[in-house]
Every structure is written in C-alpha cells, then in structure tokens.
Design a protein around this nucleic acid. Structure first.
Lengths: 243, 243
DNA sequence: CTAACATTTTTCCAACTGGTCAAAATTCTT
DNA sequence: AAGAATTTTGACCAGTTGGAAAAATGTTAG
C-alpha cells in the first residue's frame, strides 16, 4: 500500500452562479457590471473583516462559513449572498493582503543610503506585525499550507519585487556601503525576524512574561534588531564610556 | 450586535471511553496497564507519522481523521482503535515534539565561548528546519492558533529553559564576550531566522528560483546567518584583500 | 488445538459543512 | 405611494466528519 499523497479535495468545480456578482460571457449584453450599492460595500467589508479574524487563526480548511457569518453578525445564507463561495472570500482577502504586505519593501529606495533604508524597512515591517497581526498570520497560514491559492502571485509579483530589491542591495554592496552578503537571505531574515512577533505572538508573550511582554516588546524588538543588523553580536567599544 | 468572540467549539466533553487506553479510577482493580503489543507500537508510530504529515499542513481543525487514516493506510475505525480521539493523536505529537524541539537550545553551554556556542546553535536549528520541516510547521501551526493545546508547556517548560539560557547570555555579556543586548530577543531572532526556512519553504523556493532554491539554500542560509549574527551588515576590511 | 485476547471491518449515526432556493422583508426610485 | 430592485430569512440538501457498536477475523499462550 503506497503512502498515497494527500488528496486536495477542495473545490469540486463550482456548478452554478448565484445571480450577478461578475460578468457573464457569451451573450451580446454589454456586461452591465452594476456599481455596488452602499450596503454591498459595507457588508462586504464586514464579511472580509470577520473572515480575516477566522481564517488567520484556523486557515482555510479549518474555518467554516458559519464561523465567519457569526463573527460578521449575519446568517450564513446572507453572507453567501455577498460572496457566493468560501474560496471567493479567501481569494479577495489574499489579493488585498499581498499588496499591503509588500508595500514596505517597495518603499526601500535605491537612491537612499543602505542603513537608513534598511533600518526603516525593519521598522515598517515591525509596525505591520504590531498593527496587523491577523494579516501576518493569514499570510503565514497560507505559506504553511504550501500557498496553494497564491502560489502564482508569489512566483511572479513577489519574486519580481524581491529580485529588484536584491539588485538594489547588491548595488550598495558594490559601492562598499553594505557588507557583501547574500541579498536574498538578507531579505528573508528581515521578514522572519519581524513577522515572528505577529505569528508567534503567544510564544513571545509567554516567554517574556507579563512584565516585559506588554506593548513595549515591539520597542525592545526594534532596538535589538537594529543592533543585530547593524553590528551583529560582536562586542564593541562603548562610545560614551571613556573610563 | 456584539462581535462575539470565536467560539472554541472543539471538545464537547468526551462522553465514553473505547476500551482501555488509560487507567480507570474508582475500582480496587490494580490498574492493569498492559505493556503494549508489538502491533500496537508499530501502528501507533505509523499513525503518528501520518498525523504529522496532515496536521503540519492543515492544522488541527483543518485535518480530518479520514485523511490521517488514508495516509496511514488504514480505515478510520481502525485508526480510532489505537487513538480513541483526534485530540489524543495531536496531543501525543505535540508533547513528543516539544522535547526534540528544544533540544538544540538545551545544548547551548554556559561553559563554552559565546560565538562557537551561538554559531552551533544556529546550525543545529537550521538542520532541524532542513531535516524536520513538518515538525516545524506543526509547531508553527499551533502557535498561529494561539497554542490552545500546549500553552502550559510553553509557559512552563519553554519559558524556564529560555530564562535559563537568557542568563547564560547575560553572563557572556557581563564578561564582555558578547555585545550587550536583549537576550530574549536574541533567542527569538535565532528561532525566527532558522524556522523560516521550514515554515515559509514555498516562499523561499519561489523567490530563489530553481537555480538557487535547491538543497544548497541551507548552506547559503547558514553562511549568511553566521555573518549576520557575528558582524551584522556593516562593511568591514577584507582580511585577504590587501590591495 | 483452542480459549482468551487483540485487531480489523462493517454498519451506523448525529452533528456539521458548503451551498441552494423560494419567499418574505426591506430599501430605493420615480 | 407604488413598483422595482435589493437584501434577508428559513427551510432544506447532499456530502463530510468524529465517533460508537458490534460482529468478524486474526494471534498467541497454554
């Protein structure tokens, strides 16, 4: 008996459509894409917010429409009126996420100096971990599962951006302004260290305890990471300690 | 309508027991804990292996007994004969995991010198990410969910170990052998950077592409992390480049 | 060999799941 | 205010899921 790979039973081909929701092909009708009512916009936002709450904790398979509907404060059929299927909600969430998620890296400017640029990149990522932990976990959840629903975005958009920024880093290294090292792993290490504070929040809090695990932990983290990325752990002369 | 916190519907109080599996209280019977047959040991191992495969990808809620049974090559009722409920399998997996998971940190020796010790700690963690990625993801999955099933272990065993090792690091700092910095965040950064290669493996591969995303990526990571933790990103004189 | 025990299979079930549908209620437009 | 369009509800369904019970089939010590 061969181990047999996990079957990916998730999407048995959607059979019908609910009503409109997106363009219908085949007819000469000029695709009357109605502009979304106020209620539609509001409710969709409420649903996406609720879905973020649920998906970010339990992942796609582990979350149910009922759970999302309950958090959103509406009935399941009502929710399904706005998003005809579960996948749709998740897809929307993920594509919106990726844009905001990569924004900090986009801002890293080749024309700036490496240390201010890297330093503020780290700060921005850390702020995102602090202010949008659910988004971070949603992303992490998807990664853990092998990114089945966003793999192309990763392979195209994200890869291109990283390639571009790796070139920027290499440029700085050529100018002697930055230690010569692997730019890709450099970026990975910034992602890892900052997102850790969102994704492993429970662990961080548990280890730091109530005294140091409060909001101050992000400031401590920022200070520590700044030092790590600047000088590493090698001890240096204390500038303000002549004695 | 209050947002209403996610209900934790996971364990409606187990009603009955299957047959033995653990001690029965109340009777004067001397708790005949049978010593586990050969088949029992073998099958349990097969099940745990299969469960690791499944849980590490989909998390607890997202995984089904059927999936695990299929991977394990047995029927669901048969599987339930060995582990009377899903939670049991997960619990076993987690408690075994935590021991091996913390082993590398345990080995960090106060009597050694900081750089060799930290360096080999990083190496060991990186090897674990390479050789036991499923375990890493299982752990990450549990963390993302708020560690509901292992929070006490985190708050006690893990915290104690980290506290102890933080003292070791502080000692080294006092001796001037290690840059003075936050020992807790130092440990976090090692966890984050190393586990990243297991938990975000898809992303790492996608970004590095087929050329650099092969097995060599772990060696590249090791080299990069070594430099990062030793010297950071500040450029230094090239030792072997006098020109 | 066979009774006692261990293992496996078959059948079954109630709750949960993603999703449909028609009717009722509400909101918007004129 | 009325008609049209939108939104919400309630009833329902087929497939899945965790698990129980019991019968059928091995295995093994005496």
């Amino acid at each position: 008996m061969p181990p047999s790979k996990l079957k990916s039973n998730e999407a048995p081909v959607p059979p019908r459509r609910q009503q409109d929701a997106d363009a219908k092909a085949g007819s000469g009708v000029p695709v009357k894409a109605r502009p979304l009512t106020r209620i539609q916009r509001e409710k969709q936002d409420i649903i996406l917010e609720a879905a973020l709450e649920v998906f970010s904790v339990h992942g796609f398979r582990g979350s149910t429409i009922d759970q999302i509907a309950e958090v959103a404060g509406m009935s399941k059929p009502n929710l399904l009126y706005y998003f005809p299927r579960k996948e749709e909600i998740h897809r929307r969430l993920m594509s919106e996420l990726l844009v905001t998620w990569l924004a900090p890296l986009r801002e890293m400017d080749a024309k700036g100096d490496p240390f201010p640029e890297i330093r503020s990149y780290i700060r921005r990522k850390l702020e995102m971990a602090r202010d949008f932990p659910r988004e971070s976990r949603l992303f992490a959840n998807e990664m853990l599962q092998g990114a089945p629903r966003i793999i192309e975005m990763i392979e195209v958009d994200l890869k291109n951006l990283v390639d571009e920024k790796a070139q920027v880093l290499l440029g700085w290294m050529d100018e002697g302004k930055l230690a010569r090292t692997d730019p890709y792993h450099l970026i990975f290490s910034i992602w890892a260290t900052t997102q850790h504070y969102a994704d492993f929040d429970v662990q961080v809090r548990a280890v730091l305890g109530p005294a140091r695990g409060g909001e101050g932990r992000f400031e401590d983290a920022a200070r520590y990471l700044e030092q790590l990325f600047l000088f590493g752990l090698t001890p240096r002369k204390q500038p303000g300690k002549p004695a």
